[in-house]
């Protein structure tokens, strides 16, 4: 019966894809994918290939990370302020197996992601008794404990100290190949996360988020599903963490476990729009490219007036984020989609 259903789904897939492609969301998604596929080939200028293109790679890594947070917090309602735990642990495990055990990169990536799942389980269980802001503080505390442990110079022989592990290979020496590897994993990750959020499992997550007591009363083992949510989210955060480690070719406590990373995920997902998953990607791209643009502006010279934007870039960055959050409380994805939909309708003559 299941086999037949699967077969039917597969047979109907081309038709489904065709009809989905003609919808607004489908068309927009395909357009974005085409743009992202073409972008690496638009120029062979060194700056374009080695500086501009890696911003997309970085944005996609953070998109996976932010989406994993959105799955845990937006969809499942388990507020995490310590998501950097999974990001950092996976990066460290990946780096350790490459640098100290000589494992192939891809094996190390799998081990790193699975290591994050294990930590998801480890942290999920004690945090089950906590809810809302207490859960948020609990996860934050875990992340701070790990950060401090890894920072202790006196424990450097165990946790590699503040210098961490360096000299890792990158995913590819060619930024274009690196881009496409991350691109493919981003697509797969988003498909899986979106499908989870739409599946029966996602419905259970949402029911726990909206009314845990009610979900419990209807016979859902909320404990089990909350741990599952932690583990699935940790897997994708871990995957992003391994890619980030390989992007930088190094891991260290503040760079990989730092609380800032947790807030990056929260900020990106919230900027895009909570519970949307795809909003996380938009938030990540917005975040990374806003910083990129501010760095690129550099020094502005108007007559005798010299404004070094680079010195103020983080202040300007924060100010822009505050303004965006003020005027797009539910994230920027929904208003953008609404306006694009209007434009789409006009173009279609509707």
């Amino acid at each position: 019966m299941v086999k037949e259903k699967m077969k039917e789904k597969i047979n109907n897939f081309p038709g489904y894809l065709k009809s989905w492609g003609t919808t607004f969301i489908g068309g927009l998604t395909i357009l974005c994918l085409i743009i992202l596929t073409v972008i690496p080939f638009l120029s062979n200028d060194l700056k374009y290939v080695y500086v501009f293109l890696p911003q997309f790679t970085l944005a996609m890594i953070f998109a996976i990370f932010a989406a994993s947070w959105d799955l845990l917090t937006g969809i499942s309602g388990q507020i995490s302020f310590g998501h950097a735990i999974f990001f950092g642990v996976a990066g460290y495990i990946c780096a350790y197996f490459i640098d100290y055990q000589g494992f192939p990169t891809w094996v190390a990536i799998v081990l790193g992601s699975l290591g994050a799942v294990f930590f998801g389980l480890l942290i999920g269980i004690p945090c089950l008794r906590l809810k809302g802001p207490y859960l948020a503080l609990g996860t934050l505390a875990f992340s701070l404990i790990l950060l401090k442990l890894f920072l202790q110079g006196s424990l450097a022989h165990i946790f590699f100290g503040s210098e961490g592990i360096s000299g890792l290979p990158s995913l590819s020496d060619d930024p274009i190949i690196e881009y496409f590897i991350i691109f493919i994993f981003t697509i797969i990750s988003f498909i899986v996360i979106i499908q989870i959020s739409k599946s029966k499992l996602g419905t259970i997550f949402k029911s726990i988020r909206d009314d845990e007591t009610g979900a419990d009363a209807s016979g859902i083992n909320t404990t089990k599903y909350k741990v599952i949510a932690f583990m699935i989210s940790a897997f994708f955060a871990g995957l992003a963490g391994t890619f980030y480690a390989l992007y930088n070719t190094a891991v260290n406590p503040t760079g990989n476990f730092g609380t800032l990373n947790s807030f990056f995920a929260i900020l990106m997902a919230s900027l895009g729009g909570l519970t949307t998953i795809t909003g996380a990607a938009l938030g990540a791209f917005f975040f990374i490219f806003l910083e990129y643009i501010l760095i690129e502006i550099g020094v502005i010279e108007i007559g005798n007036l010299i404004i070094d934007v680079s010195l103020w870039k983080f202040a300007i960055f924060a100010l822009i984020l505050i303004i965006v959050v003020r005027f797009a409380e539910r994230g920027i994805l929904r208003p953008i989609l609404e306006h694009l939909k209007d434009l789409w309708d006009v173009l279609m003559g509707r």
Partner: peptide
């Protein structure tokens, strides 16, 4: 920055090498 973001250093190095040459 006490909250180190290592990718910023990597990007800065790439700008020096490939942009400013």
């Amino acid at each position: 920055n006490p909250n180190l973001v290592p990718s910023r250093g990597v990007d800065a190095a790439r700008r020096l090498i490939y942009d400013k040459e």
